[in-house]
């Protein structure tokens, strides 16, 4: 079992482009990251950072066309009968049997908007148990239903015996998100990708959902990739955090390290620009400028135009490499190169 390195997913130098009529969007410009087994990787990013595209690449669901994986690998290390199976998602046909065996069974996803993620014409229960019916055809309908009820109880849906036959519109937003989690976990996947799962929810409900995810992780031992634009939320749930900006990983470190000791100018600026509930109440220092056009091509650091610590003649000329400034704390910035 030495080979697993405790890594479940390894993304290596992934480049994804979207060729639109208006031009080419370089959604990912060489992203590398690892999702450790049984732990939570938080991914922080604004719109256009590529955080959701990264998730789509892992699931093998990049819409194509217009999307296209230009280079890179997405390897899944799946333990199987004591040994390990390595699957490269980028090499699988997008709708082939193999990737469909992985989706829903090994990897599942929780979306931001639980209303649109459920079909309005089927009961919640039918939709949750669909994954069992697909991946475990030997399981009887009765047993699938029992497992569904059990999972609904586990995610905190009251009276699951009755609500298994309810329709999505009969659920509140928070309950729908719980049902969504039940659906994602019903086959006990190794990885759950949560793409802004609480953004549409109220803060008190958000706290409930986050706690639930953490409890379920303890119980089932799955890895979580938690994607959000909200640093404070990610800070509360992740073990390790990746900060993305315009298709690149800018900084990566353990959560406490990243929050207490942010190194990249973007991360630092982001920290200073958000109002907090418990920090000092001083004037916010905004990041100047706006996100560049999604069609822009960046030869150097994509944050150059907004960076307050940039080195003209260096940063815009070539792309800074990832540097391990402190143990396990990686930064993509020339400030830290020799």
């Amino acid at each position: 079992m030495q080979t697993t390195k405790n890594v479940l997913v390894e993304i290596e130098d992934l480049k994804v482009e979207f060729r639109l009529h208006e031009g080419t969007v370089h959604a990912l410009e060489g992203v590398s990251l690892r999702i450790p087994q049984g732990r939570t990787l938080g991914v922080i990013g604004e719109s256009g950072s590529g955080k959701s595209v990264t998730a789509q690449a892992i699931m093998g669901i990049i819409p194509s066309p217009p999307g296209k994986i230009v280079q890179g690998r997405v390897r899944l290390y799946l333990p199987e009968n004591g040994s390990e199976r390595v699957v490269d998602v980028t090499e699988l046909p997008p709708n082939g049997a193999e990737i469909r065996q992985i989706r829903g069974k090994e990897i599942s996803m929780i979306f931001q908007e639980p209303m649109t993620s459920f079909s309005p014409v089927h009961t919640i229960g039918d939709q949750i148990m669909e994954a069992i019916r697909i991946h475990y055809p030997e399981v009887s309908k009765k047993e699938a239903r029992e497992r569904t009820i059990e999972m609904m109880r586990r995610v905190g849906i009251p009276r699951p015996e009755q609500r298994v036959d309810a329709y999505p519109f009969q659920f509140s937003g928070g309950m729908r998100q719980r049902a969504m989690i039940a659906m994602a976990l019903i086959c006990h996947p190794r990885l759950v990708i949560a793409d802004e799962p609480t953004t549409a929810l109220d803060v008190t409900i958000e706290a409930q959902i986050l706690e639930l995810l953490q409890d379920l992780q303890k119980e089932f031992g799955m890895s979580i990739m938690y994607i959000s634009h909200d640093l404070t939320v990610v800070g509360g749930i992740a073990d390790e955090v990746v900060v993305m900006y315009l298709g690149l990983v800018m900084e990566q470190a353990a959560t406490d390290e990243l929050f207490d000791n942010p190194l990249h100018p973007y991360t630092q600026a982001l920290w200073r620009s958000i109002p907090t509930i418990d920090g000092e109440l001083e004037r916010l220092s905004p990041i100047r400028g706006a996100l560049p056009s999604p069609f822009a091509v960046h030869k150097g650091c994509p944050f150059y135009s907004r960076c307050e610590k940039r080195i003209p003649g260096v940063c815009e000329v070539s792309r800074p490499p990832m540097i391990e400034v402190r143990p396990n704390h990686w930064v993509r910035c020339f400030l830290y190169s020799e």
């Binding site: 208006e22 069609f295 091509v297």
Partner: peptide, 22 residues
């Protein structure tokens, strides 16, 4: 300049003008 525009297109301008007093 580090930033080139790949195509003149339906895009937003890459700049929010600065706050009044800064």
């Amino acid at each position: 300049m580090s930033t080139q525009i790949s195509k003149p297109a339906e895009q937003r301008l890459g700049n929010d003008s600065p706050p009044a007093n800064s």
